[in-house]
């Protein structure tokens, strides 16, 4: 069982109209690994992340999470589209953290966190509240349980967003540029939470511009440009010794 990779993306193609955003992307992320995706904007890294939990559907290739195809069922060599409720069930096991936090502004921090566990998984409210406080404790925000998102700093909001995703006890966490919308002085607190999460053995795929984080925490690194993976490998190796000229020029600008 453990030899099934957590994410297996095989020759993924994604088009918007005639524009091909992802051209033949193949990525494997094993259980407990932290994979970092870097690259210039428009390179398709966020789109790829959104394909993993089927927020975007793919046009070609096969994408499976924990051995199950996302959004489709295969019988023989025929693919059948899944119903929306089946897709929702698949997504419930995959946490996602967005660049713009996307907390629900009309709910308090606590309500944000218990919403999905109680409504989607049918967890009892008292249990969900207890879990929520454990998670808030873990991200250092238990004292903000009753605050509304608008009253929190960007870093605090993002930590709540991470707690909200963790409340569904996901087997995989996707991070879409989690620190890009933050003031520089607030980036550290979010990265610390993510490092803790990585150390606890969570499988994570992180789209980021934080090269330091990729170097320190990442188990693998993928450099994307123009919808293809230009270079990949051990982060320390790729970051110190980029082989491809495109990677070299990108890194020379961001480092």
């Amino acid at each position: 069982m453990t030899d099934v990779p957590m994410v297996h993306a095989d020759h993924i193609v994604k088009r918007y109209g005639s524009h091909e955003v992802l051209k033949d992307i193949s990525v494997t992320v094993n259980r407990g690994e932290v994979a970092c995706l870097i690259g210039p904007s428009g390179s398709g890294k966020s789109t790829f992340l959104r394909c993993i939990n089927h927020l975007e559907s793919i046009n070609g290739g096969r994408l499976s999470v924990d051995g199950d195809l996302m959004g489709y069922r295969q019988r023989g060599d025929k693919l059948y589209e899944m119903s929306p409720s089946e897709v929702s069930r698949q997504r419930a096991d995959i946490g996602m953290v967005f660049q713009s936090f996307n907390l629900f502004p009309h709910m308090t921090v606590l309500e944000n966190i218990i919403e999905a566990p109680t409504r989607v998984k049918g967890v009892k409210k008292a249990t969900a509240v207890a879990t929520a406080f454990e998670l808030l404790d873990r991200v250092g925000l238990a004292h903000k349980a009753k605050a509304y998102p608008a009253h929190l700093s960007g870093g605090q909001q993002q930590r709540v967003a991470i707690a909200r995703a963790l409340a569904m006890s996901p087997k995989l966490m996707l991070f879409d540029e989690p620190t890009s919308a933050l003031d520089p002085e607030l980036v550290g607190e979010v990265l610390d939470v993510m490092k803790g999460l990585a150390q606890s053995g969570m499988t994570m795929i992180v789209v980021t511009h934080e090269i330091g984080f990729a170097r320190e925490v990442g188990d693998s690194l993928f450099f994307m440009d123009g919808g293809v993976i230009v270079e990949s490998g051990d982060p320390r190796e790729v970051l110190t010794n980029p082989k491809h000229p495109r990677t070299q020029s990108f890194l020379s600008k961001v480092l």
């Binding site: 939990n53 927020l55 929306p84 409720s85 929702s88 069930r89 997504r91 419930a92 096991d93 995959i94 946490g95 996602m96 967005f98 713009s100 996307n102 907390l103 629900f104 502004p105 009309h106 919403e115 999905a116 409504r119 989607v120 998984k121 967003a161 909200r164 995703a165 569904m168």
Partner: peptide, 27 residues
């Protein structure tokens, strides 16, 4: 209502109905 709200709800596994009734319509 910003599109990110709808995406966040769906990424949490909420159905279209739940997303509408709990997240989008109240906002």
């Amino acid at each position: 209502v910003p599109r990110g709200q709808d995406e966040a709800a769906r990424a949490l596994g909420m159905s279209w109905r739940q997303t509408m009734l709990r997240v989008v319509v109240p906002q």
